[in-house]
Computed example of a mutant assay.
Amino acid sequence: MHIVTTAVLDYRSNAIVELMRVAVADCDEQWLKDALQRAIMLELATIPPYASALWSIKDQQSDVANAIREIIFDEMSHFGLVCNMLTSIGGTPRLTGQSTVPKYPGPLPGGVRPELEVYLSGLSKDSAYLFSEIEKPDNPIALAETYTSIGAFYSRIAEVFPNYAHLLTGRRQVDFPLSGQHGAGNDIVPMNTITDVLNAIEIIKAQGEGTDASPENPFPGKPGELAHYYRFREIYHGRKLIKISDSAHPKWDFQGDPIPMPDSHRAARVPDGGWANDPANKPTPDTASKLQTFNGHYSSMLRALEQAWQTDNPMPLVGQAIGSMGSMRSSARDLVSIPLPDNSGKTYCPEYFYTAP
């Protein structure tokens, strides 16, 4: 079966659903490259909502802030690993352009979990619930539900990739150590062999979803650290997830110590089209300038990352991207402290608009 190439990488499309409908035996080289590009877009899509929630927290050293920060570093590692997979087989990650960058509010890219509306806001019970839904595995240990997940998409990629192991060149790879500060498995490593690829996919799935046997992250920064889904559920429930039955099939529930919701700026949900589309909260020229400054840093980061995987000397560009991330953090912390004009007690939140240079 011939797979039609994806000429336009449309974020709002059914591309992943369509890729999943193709039988493994019919998945060709183009299928694999398209699938990896979509996986990159999925990883990229999770970071802005998680970061907005993190930056709204007043005490950035609180347990909840540290938990979300570590999840973001995991997602960045996953993003880098999948970019390495794509370039190693001759593809080129696409991160910029109006049709490719994440769109909020709206669904995840490619038709994954279409019932979800992913939005940008500060941390709240609602946003913690949304984040857990994004990360939700096919069969959560603490719940009995079944449906298609991001993990299922990665499982399909792992099924197909060995058929194209001969394409791996190890070219245009980013090699960036993160495990020293953020735990085993967080290094962005070159994809030279099919073993490298399958190990990386295992890490991506387990850090997000846990395993069939345990909700714990087998590649943690600290012992006992939970996979992303369960960490977000802890924040939502306000309780630690603990093992309540130690039988052959252990049971877990949110019956542990309280996890208080940290004091946060009440950053409101960004409206469709941005704050300029909200008549009650149209920003002043000064606030509009600050929103645009954030968008500029975000756009610079995306361009630097896209260019990093187009060269054999990526580290200067990775350094530029890291610098832009730091500027985004400072700019966002400023924005989430600016009250909305509608006297709701809520504040602005970054928009994450891509702007051309």
Rank of each mutant, 00 (worst) to 15 (best):
I3L: 11
T6A: 06
T6Q: 12
V17L: 05
V22E: 00
V24M: 00
D28V: 09
E29Q: 10
D34F: 00
Q37T: 00
Q37H: 10
A39T: 00
L44W: 01
A45G: 04
A51Y: 14
S52L: 00
I57N: 05
K58Q: 10
S62D: 07
D63S: 08
I68Y: 04
I72V: 15
D74M: 01
H78G: 12
L81H: 14
N84T: 02
T87V: 01
Q98C: 01
T100F: 04
V101A: 02
G106C: 13
P107S: 11
V112K: 01
S124C: 02
S132M: 08
I134N: 05
I141P: 00
A142Q: 01
A144C: 04
I150R: 01
F153Q: 05
V160W: 10
R172Q: 12
V174P: 15
D175N: 14
P177Y: 12
Q181M: 08
A184T: 15
I188L: 03
N192R: 14
T195C: 05
L198F: 13
N199S: 13
I201D: 10
Q207N: 06
Q207V: 03
G208M: 09
G210K: 02
T211H: 06
D212C: 01
D212H: 07
S214C: 08
S214D: 07
P215L: 02
N217F: 03
E225H: 06
R233Y: 04
R233E: 14
Y236C: 01
H237S: 01
I242C: 06
K243N: 14
K243C: 12
S245C: 05
A248H: 12
A248F: 15
W252T: 09
F254Q: 03
Q255W: 10
I259Y: 08
D263K: 05
D263Q: 09
R269V: 13
G273S: 09
W275Y: 02
N277R: 11
D278M: 15
P285W: 12
P285N: 06
A288Q: 15
Y298V: 05
S299K: 03
L302C: 08
L302D: 12
L302I: 14
L305Q: 05
E306W: 15
W309V: 00
Q310F: 11
T311W: 13
M315L: 15
G319R: 14
A321G: 11
M325Q: 13
A332T: 02
R333C: 10
I338K: 09
D342M: 03
N343Y: 10
S344E: 04
G345Q: 05
P350M: 09
F353L: 09
P357Y: 12
